[in-house]
Design a protein around this nucleic acid. Structure first.
Length: 468
RNA sequence: GGCCCGUUCGUCUAUCGGUUAGGACGCUAGGUUUUCAACCUAGAAAGAGGGGUUCGACUCCCCUACGGGCUGCCA
């Protein structure tokens, strides 16, 4: 019996939850869920100057929208500062850490000199092995006593074995001179205390892992399994930043991508399971493994997101899709449709969902249901409502008054009408579509008429009559 | 500067020494068509460069180039 898998997502609340962070969270979630484990959330708010409650909320909201549910209470790293401090002191006690009285100026001078002489700029503290009797009565930081020789090997599930010479690792600061813990200490202590078994994070932390392992070693704690995943780059290949397409997840939500499509697309970025492109959460959870992770950064591609997104909309179950669509409308500030319209939407959903890649497109194509009479045609639709077309429509009207109102019959009726006048069906369908929906992109005219019903259809034709 | 990681079609990727280097998105051409979407058919499109190892390298090793990361009393 192996121990239960515990993963965590540990963002710092210094801004919105961007797409790279979301993907990291996704992989942690997939791995935990796929192994019947726990997925924890910890907010790394030790940097008080940059952390904001708004950012914390944005992260929570973003994860909620993406459907990445976490287990247990959200841990605030800042709240655990006392514990971090205690661990640092314990290492000091054990002789695995030391007090360093060097000032920032002295350190800077050291680095400048090292750079000028072409030496390593890693700071070597003169206090590392100093006699306590020589300690001045000055502020000090506590630094980890890193081995000076040998190698640290990170057995990384994605990157393989990565060896770093200990001479490349400095005696990092654990506790600042004001007694507050730094991130490097806090992550390790928190991961250990939270029972995290697998640390899945961006590969920008790969080098940090070697440093952090020193703390595990000093404390005699078991190491977690590391998996450092490659980052996402922008469409131009450059690192993703706020200036380079790194949008908050809520922006993707507002662009109308369904969360399921987002999860699918994001999972496929840097990870693969053979040639599978479209899959469900259940499949992703079952399939996810570090073996499928690539090592190189990937670029975000909206075109492919749209394609995957469209497939998820098409495959969605009716009630769930309607629910998500209404959520989307609420979130983006659109009025909630009446019960009648919602009922029609539900009926029309099979027609709508296979022609939309986003909720925005879905709504555009549902305009014939959502709009109230009289329908205001958009520019493209208006072009179909010229005098000739209106003539055709008024000629058609009496035929509709008597037609039996089912899809099949309507199709027959309209085809016969067009055929009798030797016109291409498009000459009839265009104006009809414009009159019924006020849009040029809609479901089939037969479907719209059937759904709208005879009365509403005739009223809309009536509305349009004098507009030319 | 030092250390670490990476590099297959435009993009996401498959391949885990032997393939006509496969798929997806996008693109191009044609078809279907009532708009949009969808769909069908066809097509263009890739192993960064150079050395090895091997009967045989996209695959293993080395070098170079390029990209990225770390090198903080940031996370």
């Amino acid at each position: 019996m192996t121990e239960q898998v515990v993963t965590r997502f540990a963002p710092s609340p210094t801004g919105f939850l961007h797409i790279g962070g979301a993907r990291t969270a996704l992989f942690n979630w997939l791995f935990a869920r796929g192994h019947g484990g726990k997925f924890l959330l910890r907010i790394e708010d030790t940097d008080r100057a940059r952390s904001t409650p708004e950012a914390t909320q944005a992260i929570i909201d973003g994860l909620a929208w993406l459907g990445l549910d976490h287990d247990g209470e959200i841990v605030s790293q800042f709240d655990r500062a006392d514990r971090h401090r205690a661990v640092a002191l314990e290492m000091l006690e054990k002789g695995r850490a030391f007090k360093c009285f060097s000032t920032q100026d002295e350190i800077q001078a050291f680095r400048d000199a090292a750079k000028a002489e072409g030496r390593s700029t890693l700071f070597v503290s003169p206090w590392r092995d100093a006699d306590p009797s020589t300690f001045p009565d000055l502020p000090f930081v506590i630094r980890l006593k890193t081995p000076e020789t040998g190698k640290t090997v990170i057995h990384d599930k994605v990157q393989g074995d990565v060896r770093i010479g200990n001479d490349q690792l400095d005696d990092m600061v654990l506790l600042r001179s004001d007694g507050t813990p730094v991130y490097m200490l806090a992550v390790v202590v928190d991961d250990h205390d939270m029972g995290v078994t697998h640390v899945i994070r961006g590969d920008d932390h790969l080098n940090n892992a070697a440093r952090q392992m020193g703390i595990y070693e000093a404390m005699g704690w078991d190491l977690p399994v590391y998996a450092h995943i490659p980052l996402i780059h922008g469409g131009d290949g450059k690192k993703l930043s706020k200036r380079h397409g790194a949008l908050g997840v809520e922006e993707y939500r507002d662009m109308g991508y369904p969360a399921a499509g987002m999860r699918n697309y994001l999972a496929r970025l840097g990870w693969s399971h053979g040639d599978d492109e479209f899959f469900t959460d259940a499949q992703a959870q079952e399939w996810f493994s570090f073996d499928g992770m690539g090592k190189s950064p990937s670029r975000f591609d909206f075109k492919k997101l749209a394609s995957i997104s469209g497939q998820h909309i098409a495959a969605a179950e009716n009630a769930a899709l309607l629910h998500d669509l209404l959520d989307f409308m609420a979130v983006t500030g659109q009025p909630t449709p009446s019960d009648t319209k919602i009922s029609l939407l539900s009926q029309a959903m099979p027609l709508l969902q296979e022609r939309a890649k986003t909720y925005i497109e879905l709504i555009e194509k549902a305009e014939f249901i959502l709009a109230d009479r009289p329908i205001a045609p958009d520019e493209k639709a208006a072009k179909f409502l010229d005098a000739v077309s209106l003539g055709i429509l008024s000629e058609l009207t009496p035929h509709l008054q008597n037609a039996s109102w089912d899809r099949q019959a309507l199709e027959g009726e309209l085809n016969a009408f067009a055929e009798a006048r030797e016109m291409k069906f498009g000459q009839l369908a265009g104006p009809l579509r414009a009159a019924l929906a006020g849009r040029s992109a809609t479901p089939s005219v037969f479907d719209m008429m059937f759904l709208l019903g005879r009365e509403e259809t005739l009223l809309r034709l009536q509305d349009v009559k004098g507009t030319a």
